[in-house]
Design a protein around this nucleic acid. Structure first.
Lengths: 231, 231
DNA sequence: GATAGTATAAATGTATACAAAGAACAAATT
DNA sequence: AATTTGTTCTTTGTATACATTTATACTATC
């Protein structure tokens, strides 16, 4: 079918404005720590480095600014936003609230098919843990949570949660590298699935909260360590 | 004092890049419905209309895009995002969740001074209702809720809530024009204040929820009416 | 008369040019 | 020697020019 061919070609060569390429490039660089907090983002240098003109750079910076990843100093330019412990605490407080809200909705709205999908996702996460393949593991984790998000039936909530989850990368989550944590994650996923299946809002909320709080402790230790090192 | 003079002058003439002026202008136009959903935002026309070049226009559009107020069609340009009843429902679900989270934090963290400020704000809202001055009324309402937001001690949460509150304008909230609603708002504010004073999280959450749900019903009626009219 | 094809116009995407503000450094004056 | 002033250089803010794509309208042909 010609139409399908075209569609697949479109998927292979999706048109993307340079601003979006730059946006994602810079975003990733900030998240991964290649661009460090406080570092200036100078348009000409970035433009030369990425082989584009200033225009797409500027548009990307506007987007990063609105995401809070860079802060603007008038007539001085953009710099990578600082991250403080307070920031992290604030974000995670909000995240807990939103994740609890999400599982509440899921309990109310998830259907059998979605439950099955979620079950499969939990299983493939387990397999990924056993495979010791970190990339696959991360994907499986994202997939599991994506399914939960989708089951909320609330697009805005999904959008907010995805954004927060991406921001978590900034806090150097090398969480999944820890052996002990990986196996406890399996248990958490299974428990969460059970709670959602039983539509037990309270239990689901509790598991979610504990899940994130554990992550928070872990990240705080890491940040503390990183901060001490850099001082 | 020369320094104070300079500071006051700076406050009077704060530097603002054109992109921010354009951003706020367009934002307001969309919120107020001057730019209608689906309407195309053509750069040259906007540039001519606002007396600037395309560059600030484009940067403003990038910001509006990230806020979800405009949607981009590749190589076709920007258009004002459509709003559906589902959108509104989604936003308000999230809003209820976040507002409940907010009052929970406030119950845990508000201090005596903040409580007093809040009380004064509730009083001045009452006065504003009696004054029949709609502008003053809106300001007093915003002020009351700002104080609550601040008392959460969570800047991210404040940011999200402010954003959502601004978005509500899109849904043509002519809420405060209704006599009956105004007086019930006084009661709600007072009840909420009492709950926060007593640090009664459940009561505060309930009041908040009811408050927003009532607004939702009202807005839904309005949107329905508007949609029927435009079809 | 309808349809297809081409040409023209208009809009976005990208690059570059120009203006102005700010920082850094050097020189002069006290 | 220190401070201040002036100059230059860098960088952002804004405008404009160019390229590419898409929409539109008109003409020619069936």
């Amino acid at each position: 079918m010609a139409k399908d061919d075209l569609a697949s070609i479109m998927k292979e060569y999706p048109y993307m404005p340079l601003r979006d390429v730059v946006f994602h490039t810079l975003r990733r660089a900030i998240m991964q720590g290649d661009l460090k907090p406080g570092e200036r983002l100078m348009e000409i240098k970035l433009a030369n480095r990425l082989g584009v003109s200033r225009t797409p750079i500027r548009e990307a910076i506007r987007m990063l600014e609105l995401e809070g990843l860079v802060t603007m100093i008038p007539r001085k330019g953009a710099q990578v936003a600082e991250i403080t412990e307070k920031d992290l605490k604030d974000v995670l407080e909000v995240r807990i609230g939103l994740e609890e809200l999400a599982v509440k909705f899921v309990c109310q709205r998830i259907n059998r098919q979605q439950l099955e999908e979620l079950h499969r996702a939990a299983r493939s996460f387990e397999e990924a843990v056993r495979s010791e393949d970190l990339t696959r593991l991360a994907e499986a984790d994202v997939n599991f949570h994506d399914l939960i998000y989708k089951a909320t039936g609330n697009e805005r909530l999904v959008q907010l949660l995805n954004n927060i989850r991406e921001q978590m990368y900034r806090y150097r989550v090398e969480y999944l590298k820890d052996e002990e944590i990986r196996s406890s994650l399996i248990q958490e996923h299974n428990q969460l699935w059970e709670a959602l299946k039983d539509r037990d809002e309270k239990k689901a909320a509790r598991i979610t909260q504990e899940h994130i709080e554990r992550q928070q402790e872990y990240i705080l230790e890491n940040i503390m360590a990183a901060d001490r090192k850099s001082e």
